[in-house]
């Protein structure tokens, strides 16, 4: 299987593409290096969303991020969805294509939310087989993103990170590592986020996500509707040390603010990037 990219390669900091910002993106000056489009929003036959996407794809590298594959489901893969996804991939040639380590549908019913798997060998085998089918169909490797979760199934006997590593290995797929999701799940289920990071296979990580959560008292809720939390920035620093200057996305999905607010988050991420690069350079100079 080819590595991620039969397409262009990806570098630097990206923003989640949201319809509220189409005009800002096409008219403004200050921009991220790439945009991530939510694939499920562009599955119509035509119209304005696809028109904007093609204008933006002419100017910037784009990645595709979806939730509809329902990779962990026991239902057959939805052929209509796969076909539409492939048509979009063929048309726009995204640098990366990703979906989630979860299931969103069962028994023909769709929940449109990211439900965690029971973390078992059997479930790992199942989801890996499905990922392989998708990769086969699309003709490229896909990235799987770790999700925020709010419950644990009694059937689980593997840790989330062991389950994830098992799936990556079995499916020979890549990892979209969401730093915020690790933090949220670690808080909700009392595991060590740094240890999780340390155990991920660095060579499979191709993209990082940053987003904001909401503290509900009893649990953290991954709303993607707030600035990135300080503790998540700290974990991001760890991730940069571990994975190098990895393409990083700022995601904001609810209560979407003005474009300038997102650019501010982006410049914060850039500071961490530059600090990291200085650190690397200093060390290199020292060794030299």
């Amino acid at each position: 299987m080819n590595s991620a990219s039969p397409f262009s390669s990806l570098e630097g900091l990206g923003l989640g593409l949201r319809s509220q910002h189409y005009q800002d993106i096409l008219s403004g000056q200050n921009h991220p290096q790439w945009f991530e489009a939510l694939t499920d929003n562009y599955m119509g036959d035509g119209g304005l969303p696809l028109q904007y996407l093609s204008q933006i794809a002419e100017r910037f590298p784009i990645t595709f991020h979806g939730i509809g594959l329902s990779l962990g489901s026991l239902d057959p893969l939805n052929q209509d969805y796969l076909k539409k996804l492939k048509a979009l991939v063929d048309r726009f040639q995204p640098a990366l294509v990703s979906d989630h380590l979860c299931w969103t549908s069962a028994s023909g019913l769709h929940g449109h939310d990211l439900f965690p798997m029971p973390y078992t060998e059997l479930a790992a085998k199942h989801i890996a087989e499905r990922i392989e089918q998708v990769q086969e169909y699309l003709g490229c490797q896909i990235l799987i993103e770790n999700v925020s979760s709010y419950l644990e199934f009694k059937d689980s006997y593997l840790s989330e990170v062991d389950f994830l590593c098992e799936v990556l290995e079995r499916a020979d797929c890549l990892l979209l590592c969401d730093i915020n999701n690790i933090y949220v799940s670690a808080q909700n289920h009392q595991f060590d986020a740094k240890d999780y990071l340390a155990r991920l296979p660095a060579d499979r990580v191709k993209e990082l996500h940053l987003a904001g959560f909401e503290d509900q008292g009893t649990h953290l809720l991954d709303t993607h509707g707030a600035p990135v939390h300080d503790d998540v920035w700290k974990l991001y620093e760890e991730a940069l040390k571990r994975f190098g200057s990895m393409p990083t996305l700022i995601e904001w999905d609810t209560d979407i603010p003005e474009y300038s607010v997102l650019l501010k988050e982006l410049s914060k991420a850039r500071q961490y990037w530059e600090q990291h690069n200085h650190h690397i350079k200093d060390r290199a100079d020292y060794v030299a």
């Binding site: 489901s73 439900f115 059937d155």
Partner: peptide, 17 residues
């Protein structure tokens, strides 16, 4: 061997709805 996983998902999604 997938029955347990199938049953879990089936119950969960119907429970949600």
């Amino acid at each position: 061997e997938s029955n347990a996983l199938n049953a879990l998902q089936d119950k969960f999604i119907h429970g949600l709805y």
